[in-house]
Design a protein around this nucleic acid. Structure first.
Lengths: 342, 342
DNA sequence: TATATTTGTTCAATCGATTGAACAAAAATA
DNA sequence: TATTTTTGTTCAATCGATTGAACAAATATA
């Protein structure tokens, strides 16, 4: 029952009275092999349930047709959707992906990079962990000659292909909308400043407020991990502050959910007394009561474009120019910020 | 700057005036190599930033030290937590994991299995897709001599190691609790009967009701995909039925969330008019208003035990006995079913 | 001192597939 | 018929690491 004897090109060669090299060439459609032989070889391959040995061919060719994907965490709609779309595109092109998660930890991320390099993936597509400030490990990927594409969280100094949205503009969409809802005192629960995308959101927040002639006191920009608890803690802090805001723009949906919980627990009317906007369009934002306004990052597009950037690079190894693809953000207005509809 | 020349044992050998085989043995602590040589080799390895070529050693040894993990979807706390714990245990034992998702699709699952077999993983740890009824591909894993461990969703006929919870008993915990809350008409939004775990939950549901002397009309057991929409649709259907239930036991948290939405939209008091219990202890169940009672499946334990089952098997290839590890479920009582507290 | 044992290293084959060069046979051209 | 070209296949080296056998040198035993 257990048919452990995997067949090799040798077995096929033996059956047909050929040499292994002829078989290899037949399978790879080498021009010098006759059609007759090719057909016979391919038939025999099926008969013997032949599966090429990936390890040996990768070793010989120096190419694994494997791409590593590193994301901060899988349990997020945004990231899992990006991965799904990366996979879709790469599968069509003969690549398989290996998905790993850093859990937002720098140490874990380094370990994952080492593993992927060890397995000799042809490239890595990654979004950086919150903790990561030291880019040494990413430099290492490039120095090993492995392709690297970043998405969402990526730093410009690495000088590699990047796909993401216009974070600066996102903040403008958010703030302009809140202003149109007659909000006057808008606070920002932000991500860490050392990460480019969050820095951009902060910059956009400030500029958009200034443009509208509203104040943006420094203590209304609160950096955090954007976890549920951070959202809760900071919202409570804002509620307790002497001049309470009338709107809060949160740089992540999960933290926005935490913030919403605290608002509801304190019987604050949303959006009448306090408007709320999150970021990422996680599915649960449409499920809460009230539903949470948020910013759509086009995860499907990001995945597709990141995969294509990798393919382009691997197919043109000489190419020197760097692609920076910036998508338009889309504001999704739901109950938590819509004072007219409710 | 780009240091593409990866060093090999040959390079180390050249530096030290040894042969590659001596270097290989030194690195692998072969007893016949002198300590002096070992130290010298290891120093040189560090100097040259030597990284063993995984492909060649895997090819030669017939062992990749890679384990594939197949889950229905990553975007779920239960599955991502299981994977996290599998990884933790396996990393400590020198294995790396490759995580893939079937998206609940049989075709995708088959493709993932092929990929993993191609990459020549040493084993596969999997939870089966909802769609899967044909076990041929899983048989294939075994017939190739690759170790297989199943968790949560696994069928007995495959005759492989399994880790899961006692689904039959889970239903008893749920029903007994609902009965204690004075519920009399308890419906069940179930998963597909062809999957063992859901079948067991249904069986437990029926037996527990019978034990309590309550009716369980067949049309109160409604099979589904357990998606959000299924929960919504079926709950609406139950509300519209002539004899409306006063409690619903849902075999999955996401469907339970959908059900809750419909209840709230219809202004039905939960749990007073309708009690609700889900399954899996997804984090959002504690975040809804009211929070949803559910069953904890001990994802961390499942991951750990599945990884250990794999390790045990790979270390004792001759072992013939099958491990079936069944954990105790834990009922988590929250607002949606607790009529006393609220 | 002669022989046996231990120690440290090299040799050579191997894992399975790939690939350029070599070669013989068949076909085309002169 | 002699020569060139084309075609189909085999040969042999290679990717990098591993491993049992072989061998020489050093050490121990008789």
């Amino acid at each position: 029952m257990e048919n452990k004897k995997k067949s090799t090109i040798k077995d096929i060669a033996a059956v047909l009275g050929l040499t292994p090299s002829a078989v290899s060439k037949a399978l790879n459609d080498h021009p010098r092999i006759s059609d007759k032989t090719k057909i016979a070889v391919k038939e025999a391959a099926i008969q013997l349930d032949y599966q090429p040995n990936y390890l040996s061919s990768a070793l010989r060719k120096g190419k694994s047709n494997l791409v590593g994907v590193i994301i901060p965490r899988v349990n997020s709609h945004f990231f899992s959707s990006v991965v799904e779309n990366i996979e879709k595109v790469l599968n069509l092109n003969g690549y398989n992906i290996i998905m790993t998660q850093s859990n937002e930890l720098y140490a874990k991320e380094c370990q994952e990079i080492d593993t992927l390099l060890k397995i000799q993936v042809d490239g890595i597509i990654a979004s950086m962990a919150n903790e990561t400030t030291d880019l040494e490990y990413y430099q290492k990927i490039k120095s090993k000659g492995t392709e690297l594409v970043l998405f969402d969280r990526g730093e410009e100094e690495l000088n590699v292909d990047y796909v993401g949205i216009d974070d600066y503009k996102s903040s403008h969409l958010v703030i302009d909308h809140l202003v149109s809802q007659n909000c006057k005192r808008i606070a920002h629960i932000a991500g860490f400043k050392h990460i480019r995308i969050y820095k951009e959101r902060i910059r956009g927040y400030k500029d958009a407020l200034e443009k509208s002639g509203l104040a943006a006191p420094e203590n209304w920009i609160i950096e955090s991990n954007l976890r549920l608890d951070d959202g809760r803690r900071i919202m409570q802090q804002l509620l307790d502050s002497p001049e309470r805001p009338d709107a809060v723009y949160v740089a992540g949906d999960i933290a926005a959910l935490g913030a919403l919980q605290v608002l509801l627990e304190n019987n604050i009317k949303v959006p009448e007394e306090m408007a709320l906007i999150g970021f990422s369009d996680e599915p649960f934002t449409s499920l809460t009561q009230p539903s949470i306004s948020t910013v759509n990052q086009h995860s499907d597009q990001i995945g597709k474009l990141a995969a294509e950037a990798f393919l382009e690079r691997i197919n043109n190894p000489k190419k020197k120019t760097i692609n920076r693809i910036i998508l338009e953000p889309e504001l999704i207005i739901r109950q938590s910020s819509n004072r007219n509809l409710k």
